[in-house]
């Protein structure tokens, strides 16, 4: 359309050919995307439909609507306790990781530290190590320390394993805060503590939020670590609980399973949306420096 208007003087051939071509390609593009969208949507749709279906099975079908599944799950003590466990586990992990990442990233970004570069490389390398490698030694350590089957000690290890990447992420965010702002504040007579609290921290809020949410999403979904390090039913977080239910056909209805995993997924989806908003939101360093 715009191609036609933009070139009123061009010959007919020139106008018509690009117009048709573009349009066909655009049609194909959108069509392929719709198909791909279905591929991504279909499996999810089962969870949504089954959760409100009074008699669901493995296939997607138009549900005969009911809220009974929700009532079922919300009435189950094991389901509720696994939510509690997940909250404690992910919450503790997030607070610890974010706090320590913030504390470590600031000096790594701003101060003179010997061997900083190799240290950052080791940090980056560490964040790529497979958890499978750590499971056995950590299990041994926890047996030795008597730390098994506690949500807090499990969170401690989750925090340790997510810390390298969090430090790395956080450092990049702090690097992006112009150091001149700290200089200006120092000249203004502010103490180091005041500079951290009133200049650096407010400006790293978006980065801290992204780091915290990222850590939380990962800890919320963490499976193998709590699977190995906890055993009493009360301490099983959501993923382990869902896994147990999946294995116990018959004891747990499809509909309930769908509701459970749906409810368990909602918090991270909401957090992700929040994070992406935060990230692309109006807050930027516009106007700070020329």
């Amino acid at each position: 359309m715009s191609a036609v208007q933009a070139r009123p003087l061009a010959g007919d051939k020139l106008i018509v050919v690009p117009y048709r071509k573009v349009s066909a390609a655009a049609m194909a593009t959108n069509l392929v995307l719709i198909l791909l969208g279905c591929f991504f949507l279909l499996p999810m749709l089962w969870m949504v439909f089954a959760s409100i279906d009074s008699n669901p099975d493995w296939a997607i079908r138009i549900p005969s609507p009911t809220l009974a599944n929700f009532a079922d799950v919300l009435g189950r003590a094991d389901a509720l306790s696994s939510f509690r466990s997940s909250l404690i586990l992910a919450g503790t992990t997030t607070v610890l990781t974010t706090l320590l990442a913030l504390l470590s990233a600031y000096p790594l970004s701003r101060m003179h530290i010997p061997f900083k570069r190799p240290f950052m490389l080791v940090i980056l390398f560490a964040s790529g190590l497979p958890v499978s490698m750590l499971v056995v030694p950590v299990y041994q350590m926890y047996v030795y320390l008597g730390w098994l089957d506690s949500l807090y000690t499990t969170a401690l290890f989750l925090a340790a394993s997510s810390l390298p990447f969090a430090i790395w992420l956080m450092k990049n965010f702090i690097d992006a805060v112009p150091v001149e702002l700290e200089h200006a504040a120092a000249i203004d007579g502010a103490s180091t503590f005041r500079i951290l609290r009133e200049v650096v921290l407010p400006l790293t809020v978006p980065g801290t939020a992204v780091t915290a949410i990222y850590t939380f999403i990962n800890a919320w979904g963490a499976f193998i670590i709590p699977f190995v390090l906890t055993y009493s039913p009360d301490n099983q977080p959501g993923p382990v609980e869902i896994y147990n239910f999946m294995g116990s056909h018959g004891l747990f209805k499809f509909g309930d399973l769908a509701v459970f995993s749906l409810l368990f997924s909602v918090p991270v989806i909401v957090l992700y949306l929040f994070m992406s908003r935060y990230f692309s939101g109006a807050f930027n360093f516009g106007g700070a420096v020329k």
């Binding site: 001149e180 702002l181 200006a184 504040a185 200049v199 930027n284 106007g287 700070a288 420096v289 020329k290």
Partner: peptide
């Protein structure tokens, strides 16, 4: 400052 360095927040 040549670059102003105003506190953006």
């Amino acid at each position: 400052f040549q670059s102003y360095a105003l506190y953006p927040h």
